[in-house]
Amino acid sequence: MTAFFQSLGMSYEWAWFVATICGILLIALPLMLAVAMVIYVDRKVLGAIMLRRGPNVVGPFGILQSFADGLKVFLQETIIPSAANKGLFLIAPIITFAVALLAWAVIPFNSGAVLADINVGLLYVLAISSLGVYGVVIAGWASNSKYPFFSAMRAAAQMISYEVSIGFILICVVLWAGSFNMNDIIEAQRGHGLGFVNGFAFNLLLFPMWVMFFISSLAETARAPFDLTEAESELVAGYQTEYSSMSFALFWLGEYANVLLMCMLNAVLFFGGWLPPFEWEPLYWIPGWIWLFGKTFLFFFMFSWIWATVPRFRYDQLMRLGWKVFLPLSLLFVVLISGYLMLTRFAV
């Protein structure tokens, strides 16, 4: 895109600047639209599984429901509790929302179609996703109220626990791909299974890693069955209890943007990203971003399916799963995979 703006007679610096701004808008605006649609899909899928209709009033098939909800919260009054720490109370949803948008900078949407093609791409995603907890923790503390505070404590412990095993899982992927760059990781999956299946999930050593990554991404985004941070039967609405209007909506948007990001990471790291599922020429006629979005949507469907099906975990069970099951298992697989690679790829 920089070259295009340069051809309009700009100097390189200005062309780069304008191209980057355009790239950010090209990612952020469709992302917001996608979040609105995905909330609708979530409710529709839940409705279908629970044998009810779901949203069906606003627009054809209720497709504009999210926009109506958005308008509604936009017109509401922002209520700040008198005991709250005002500045932090208002900053917290902004942090959640901004952090949810940040990580999209390194996601490759097609061959070379990435905003920031940095060689520490995966580490960047890990770094940004580890920031997500701050919005929740600050919100819980600044609300100065019991239930949000419990929720914040839970969120902090939960996200740290699952980040550790996610880190080890990502190390397995990086070891196999030989790079931290997201595009290189996708390229490394070309023809990975039997020479024609694209994706690390078709590797016997990496498949268990994908299962663990999928469950960990549920926990990392605090989706059911790990939605203990907003367990409505115990904590009212968790850290969102004191929030209203746009500050509440920002949490909501940020949360779903994070869910989409995790679905996309599943697709990029284990299912070949923008590569078609099989190495077959006609499949390449469909543009790469459609494959990527299709895979992401599939994982999102699985997220809502799980939400509708599985009962909520108890808190100690969540901690047990993270520290006593996933951590040793992922550590074992780091050893197994590096050992296998030493025997085969790096054998002297």
Binding site: A127, S130, L131, V133, V137, W141, M153, I160
Partner: peptide
């Protein structure tokens, strides 16, 4: 991502 969260956890 990790150390400061624990700080915050304790200090809060």
């Amino acid at each position: 991502g990790a150390v400061a969260v624990l700080f915050l956890f304790v200090v809060m």
